[in-house]
C-alpha cells in the first residue's frame, strides 16, 4: 500500500481524509486506484494532475515507479509561462 497525500479541496471527496492509502506501484496505478476508490476525484484526475514522488514533480508519467515507502503527493497540474 502507498500513502497518498491530497491537496485540501480534494478532501471533500475522500470523507475529509488528507491522506489515503491505495495499492499501487506506478504513477498511473495511483490515479486509477484513487478514481476507483473515490469517484468524486475522477473529474480532477481527468482534467490533469501532477504528482510529487519523493520530492520530484511529475506530469503524465504513467510508468514512474512508486515504492511502498515513497512520499506521494497529488498536486494540481503544473503550468508555467
Amino acid at each position: 500500500m502507498v500513502k497518498v497525500l491530497l491537496w485540501g479541496s480534494l478532501r471533500t471527496h475522500t470523507d475529509g481524509q488528507a491522506e489515503v492509502e491505495v495499492e499501487a506501484r506506478t504513477f498511473k496505478e495511483v490515479l486509477d486506484r484513487l478514481a476507483e476508490a473515490y469517484p468524486g476525484l475522477r473529474p480532477q484526475i481527468e482534467r490533469g494532475v501532477s504528482m510529487a514522488i519523493d520530492g520530484r514533480i511529475y506530469r503524465e508519467a504513467w510508468f514512474t515507479e512508486i515504492k511502498p515507502d515513497s512520499e506521494v503527493v497529488v498536486m494540481p497540474y503544473m503550468t508555467g509561462g
Partner: peptide, 20 residues
C-alpha cells in the same frame, strides 16, 4: 467546477486549499 462549494456566487469557478 466540482471543487466549488454550494452557495458561492455564479462567477466563482474554482476553489483550492493547501497546507498542513
Amino acid at each position: 467546477l466540482e471543487s466549488v462549494p454550494a452557495g458561492m456566487g455564479a462567477n466563482v469557478t474554482h476553489h483550492c486549499e493547501f497546507g498542513h
